[in-house]
């Protein structure tokens, strides 16, 4: 179980003059929930498509479940693409069974699993309803079930939360955790950091096709250095004179965030505040959210969000 489920090294994919993914390397370990974060157009979908061998890399090497030819292990992988679709005229149970059968599950087993899955996720009564008659949330659930009905070892979900209301998002989160508890490895991409923060053991951030971070949330926070939150009606900008304080930025009125040098002593910062007659109303460690980390690590600016989606 020490072999990685997924290993990419130096993967690059070009579409004509446009490089969607550049020299990307990362590994995913068995049983992990691995988040794949990036802006629209950062190269997430292209990377996931390469894992499924729908698009082949221009350069680099990848191995999925120990195979260098992802196509050979296709049946052990489940893939939920970003933009979802089912045949509108097909019944829910038939849809799940059909996609399972394409993955090599025998007819009878496929059928049984489809009905069992629908029952378990409270869609049993819709087994014979056509997809077009289901609500969007139900259809998305059916789609996810159609991706897991062949019991894959590795699940690749591209933006699984998009388009779901908060209730269904919670249901999906529970499903993902349940699948992991069943021993599966799950990779999902998202640009909604809250999900990643709650679910992921480790995550990867990419920007413009390049890796900017890989590791745990704690790793990311550590890399960004320690921060202090200082509440004061006075101006604390003079504190940058201290060797411990690298920068001071205003978060809101009378609230500032101080970036500290590595190994800095917080007591000395507090003492310096008192020395300089800076009234301290609030003083404590500030934890960066993944959302904030994302903006820092990915160097993302809102105006870049309109970048064109790769492929």
């Amino acid at each position: 179980m020490t072999d990685p489920v997924l290993r990419l090294s130096g993967i690059t994919r070009r579409f004509g003059a446009f490089t969607a993914v550049k020299d990307l390397s990362f590994t995913v370990r068995p049983g992990e929930i691995y988040g794949f974060l990036g802006q629209n157009g950062a190269g997430k979908t292209t990377t996931l498509r390469m894992l499924m061998d729908i698009v082949s890399p221009s350069a680099g090497e990848l191995s999925v479940l120990g195979s260098h030819r992802p196509r050979e292990v296709r049946r052990r992988v489940g893939y939920l693409p970003e933009e979802r679709g089912l045949y509108k005229k097909m019944k829910a149970a038939d849809s799940i069974a059909y996609f399972a059968r394409l993955k090599g599950v025998p007819r009878k087993t496929a059928r049984e699993r489809a009905e069992a899955l629908l029952d378990r996720f409270e869609l049993g009564e819709f087994a014979n309803a056509k997809i077009e008659a289901l609500s969007k949330g139900m259809a998305q659930k059916v789609q996810l079930l159609s991706v897991i009905a062949h019991e894959p070892e590795l699940l690749i979900l591209d933006e699984p939360f998009s388009g779901l209301d908060p209730v269904n998002q919670q249901i999906l989160e529970d499903m993902i955790l349940e699948l992991r508890a069943g021993g599966r490895t799950i990779i999902f991409s998202t640009h909604v950091m809250e999900h990643a923060e709650r679910l992921c053991d480790r995550f990867l951030m990419i920007a413009k096709g390049k890796k900017v971070f890989e590791g745990t949330l704690a790793d990311a926070r550590a890399r960004e250095g320690e921060r202090l939150l200082l509440g004061t009606p006075d101006d604390p900008s003079g504190l940058t004179a201290l060797p411990e304080v690298e920068s001071v930025e205003a978060v809101e009125a009378a609230l500032f965030r101080l970036s500290l040098a590595e190994g800095a002593d917080r007591q000395r910062v507090l003492a310096a505040c008192l020395e300089r007659n800076i009234r301290v109303e609030r003083f404590g460690a500030a934890q960066l959210s993944l959302h904030e980390l994302f903006f820092r690590l990915a160097g993302a600016a809102p105006d870049e969000a309109a970048q064109r989606e790769a492929a």
Binding site: R49, M52, I54, R71, R74, R75, V77, Y79, L80, P81, E83, R84, G85, L86, Y87, K88, F99, L102, K103, Q143, S146, V147
Partner: peptide, 17 residues
Amino acid sequence: VEEKSNKIVEVLLSSVT
């Protein structure tokens, strides 16, 4: 066109060539 506009084709392509 249906498979393409519904994006079913991507699911299919994750299973078959």
